[in-house]
Design a protein around this nucleic acid. Structure first.
Lengths: 131, 131, 131, 131
DNA sequence: GTGGTCTAGACCACG
DNA sequence: GTGGTCTAGACCACC
C-alpha cells in the first residue's frame, strides 16, 4: 500500500497515514476483517520511519478502527454502532466547518450539496447488514 | 469576551481562540464591521499571553475573517465570496469526516440530519434595531 | 485633495499620504513651487488626525520633497540632482524587488518591461529644463 | 549563515532576515531543494531569538519561498509561476520607486540602467556540478 | 534532531 | 488608546 504523503504539509505524517486508512475504510476499500500491511512493510513502501506508521496504527486502534492481533497484525474492526464519543467529536468539528462556511458566504444548501457530492463519490458498496 | 479554553487540549490555544471567533461569526453573534476586543483585553479576560491572542488575530486576518484598522483595532470583514481556496480545504475536511462517519456506522441520512441540526442552532438572530 | 486611504492596510496612514504625494510629484501633477493643502485642510478632507498629516509632511520635508514656508505652508521643492543618499536607498530597495522577482520566476526582460509600462503611465509632461 | 542585521533599523529583524534570504534565492546562492539552517542554528549564529527567526520562516513559507519539511527543516521551494498576486504587489512598489526617482531627478534611462546593473550583479552562477 | 507553542514582560510605532 | 516586535527560556509534538 502506497500513500500519497506530503512531507511539507502541516498535517503530521502519522495523521496523513491514519486519515488515508480511515478514508479507505469509509469508502469500503478496506473491509471489516481485512488485514492492514505490516508496520515494517508500510513504512518501507512509503519511505517513512517505522515509528511513524506505528503511531498511526496505535491511534487507529485507540479510536476503534482496527484491532491489533499479535499473530497476524492489524485487522479492520467490524462497524460499531454505540459510538457516542465519536458523535460528540464529529459534531464539534462539523460546527466549526459549518460556521466557517457561513462566514465565507456558503449557505446551507451549498454545504449540504457538497456533502451529497462527497457521499456520491464514495463507493456505494453495501454496508454489510448493519445500518 | 471570555472564551472556554482547554489548556490541556492538543489544539493550540491560539487556534481555540480563532475557532471560537469563527464560530461566533458563523452564528451571526459577531457581525461585519463590529470590532473585536483589543488584543490586551482579550488576553487579560482569558488569562493568556498577549502574543497568543495576537497570533490568533494574525491567522484570522490572513484567512480574511477580520481586518486590522490601525485606529480602532480588529474588525470583522464583510462576507467575501469567490473563496475557491476555502472550498478546496472544506471538501478535504468533509471527506475525512464523512468517511469516518461511514466507518463508524453513521449513514448519509444521519450525517445530513446532524448537519441540519447544527445549522438550525445557528439561525441568524434578527439584527436588533441597530444597523 | 482627497486621497484613497486604506485604514486596514499594514502601511501606516502617514506613509500612504506621503507616498501619494511623492507619486503625484513624480507624475508631474504637483510641480515645483506649487503649494500643498494646509495640514488642517488635508486632515479634514480625508478624515484623519492632523498629527498624521503633519507627520507625512515632516517626512516629505526630511527627504527633500517639500519645503515648509511658515507663511504659506508646504511647497514642492525644485528637483534636486546631487541626491546620492537617495540613490543608495533606491538601489537597496530595487535589489530586494529584483531578487524577489527572480525568485518568483520573473526574468529580467519581464521586469524591465514592467518598469517601462509604469514609466509610460506617468504623465510625460516635460521635466522643466533639468535632466 | 550569518546575516548583517541592523538592530537599530526601523525594519523589523524578522523582515531583515526574510529579505536576506529572498535576496540569496534571487541571486541563486540558495537553490530549490536546498535546506535553510535550523531555526535554532540561525538564531544562535546571529544572536537573535528563536521566535524571531521562526517568524521570518513563517512569512517566507506563507509567501511560497520555502516549505517546511517535518523531517529536515525548511527547504527552498521550486520556482512557482502564475503568481499574479506577486505582480500586483510588485507593480505597486515599482510605481512608488519610479515616481520618487523622477521626483529626485533620475530619468527613465538612469533608472533602467540601475536595474540592469543590479541584474548583472546577480548573474546565476553556474551550478557547480552538483544538482 | 526538527519546528511549534507559550509565557511574562518590555519597548516601539501609530493615531 | 491600538497592534507590532522582541527577548529568554521553557515545554511539546513529530520524526
Amino acid at each position: 500500500m502506497t500513500i500519497d504523503l506530503d512531507m511539507t504539509s502541516s498535517i503530521p505524517i502519522y495523521l496523513q497515514i491514519k486519515n488515508h486508512i480511515v478514508i479507505s475504510i469509509g469508502k469500503g476499500e478496506l473491509k471489516a476483517g481485512e488485514y492492514l500491511p505490516a508496520v515494517r512493510q508500510l513504512a518501507c513502501d512509503n519511505g517513512v520511519n517505522m515509528m511513524t506508521v506505528s503511531k498511526a496504527y496505535s491511534v487507529l486502534r485507540s479510536e476503534g478502527y482496527i484491532e491489533i492481533d499479535r499473530r497476524h497484525g492489524a485487522k479492520i474492526s467490524g462497524t460499531k454502532l454505540k459510538n457516542e464519543e465519536f458523535k460528540v467529536r464529529l459534531s464539534c468539528e462539523l460546527l466549526l466547518l459549518i460556521a466557517s462556511s457561513k462566514a465565507n458566504g456558503l449557505d446551507k444548501n451549498a454545504f449540504i450539496q457538497m456533502c451529497e457530492n462527497i457521499f456520491s463519490t464514495m463507493n456505494p458498496q453495501k454496508v454489510q447488514g448493519i445500518v
